[in-house]
Design a binder for these strands. Structure first.
Lengths: 223, 223
DNA sequence: GCGTTTCGATACGCCCCGTAGCGTAACTCA
DNA sequence: TGAGTTACGCTACGGGGCGTATCGAAACGC
């Protein structure tokens, strides 16, 4: 719709787009969300402030677009087991949240979005829904390996699979975000392993942080 | 230390404290984090703006104190099973996050805290550590019921128990926050039940959202 | 070329932040 | 009771950001 809407007149400068988003990210790194100002971003990008407002309604929308691309770096290499796949995506997501531009911006735009429907929709489209394929793909692989039961057939089964993927996504992403930003403790490989064990085997098996306790009761297969 | 420091002079008005924090919460409800201003809070509280700055260094620190008391309402009634306990605390926490003053403020102060060590410490002390007892208590009850294995003895066992409690806290709180604020979908009893099932039995058993699919393969005990 | 749209530049009104200065109020201690 | 100390209300202020308006120039399609 954006294509057919404006076929006439001077086209938007793609170079300006890139320069603005780059400037936004570097401003986030140096100043954080609170210190970032539209005037400063325009200055860094070598662009007039009006050019920013021609593209985005406000600071939040612009920052969402600037940060969203960072999440596209997330990948899901097939490591041969559900355990390894989960552990690796947890660590990759945590590394992403360590980056100052992501860390300071993500929570801020989510906070703004609690009172801004358009912004909430933009976050969902640009970040949340976009990364959900990681869970879908990981689930599919695990089912192919026999590590997870197959989805029930029919439309109800597909809906149930969707709900399961949504749940897993919220649990994994939420746990990492909460650990990293709210509890403010670092996500170590040991922690990632413990989280993975909890997800795979459930609470009763989550005694030790890595591997079941010696002589423990419920230590299932792990390798 | 705050007591012995200032024993002389006019004491701080406790009434002003309450009026300010009440005004802060009501301003959050009506205006949200972004719309809340120090001048407006002072006006609502019937207090001079300088009185606010005499107590808190900035907006974020004040809001943390204003919101922290909301979390003290969380309780953990003994419902007789780990499943019921988890489900109830999930729903209670979600209901808390539904309240506009909590919803808009929590993410905002966490975002600010990514670049403010003092604020991060205040959040941990006033909110995170304060609510962790819910997990510790729930775990203790479940162990007494035999639903969870007991902690290994000795200081290593206690440390492992602490790590387990931290992990569970991050997983539960993180999942609810992510579902409610990032994914922006409501936390229903059905979802709470599915999350609880995932926590209790692990991913392989998380086929259906509530109850195993008819003729499903891995439906463990539930009642 | 003509209409349309973008761009840079500048200026502006509005509002908020956080602090300073002052006289007054409340409390402790001698 | 009076002196010392701290909190309070009030007002005013400098600094800075937001988002908009306006203008002439530039870059496109037709």
């Amino acid at each position: 719709m954006a294509d057919s809407a404006r076929r006439t007149g001077r086209p938007r400068s793609a170079a300006a787009d890139r320069a603005i988003l780059d400037a936004t990210r570097s401003a986030l790194v140096e100043l954080g969300w609170g210190g970032l100002t539209m005037g400063d971003v325009a200055l860094r990008a070598g662009v007039a402030k009006t050019t920013l407002y021609r593209r985005w309604a406000n600071k939040s929308e612009m920052v969402v677009d600037a940060v969203a691309v960072l999440f596209d770096e997330l990948e899901l290499p097939d490591l041969g087991s559900l355990r390894a796949d989960v552990e690796s995506v947890v660590l990759a997501f945590a590394a992403l949240l360590e980056r100052p531009e992501a860390k300071t911006a993500l929570m801020a735009v989510v906070a703004e979005a609690t009172r801004d429907d358009a912004l909430r929709a933009r976050i969902r489209a640009a970040i949340v829904e976009r990364q959900k394929h990681l869970v879908v793909e990981g689930r599919r692989r695990a089912q192919a390996r026999g590590e997870l039961p197959p989805d029930p057939p029919g439309p109800e089964g597909a809906a149930a699979a969707d709900r399961a993927a949504d749940l897993i996504f919220d649990v994994i992403a939420g746990a990492v975000v909460h650990r990293s930003l709210v509890s403010a403790e670092s996500v170590t490989p040991v922690w990632a392993r413990a989280l993975t064990a909890l997800l795979l085997h459930g609470l009763p098996s989550a005694a030790g942080p890595a591997g079941p306790a010696p002589g423990g009761s419920g230590g299932p297969v792990d390798a």
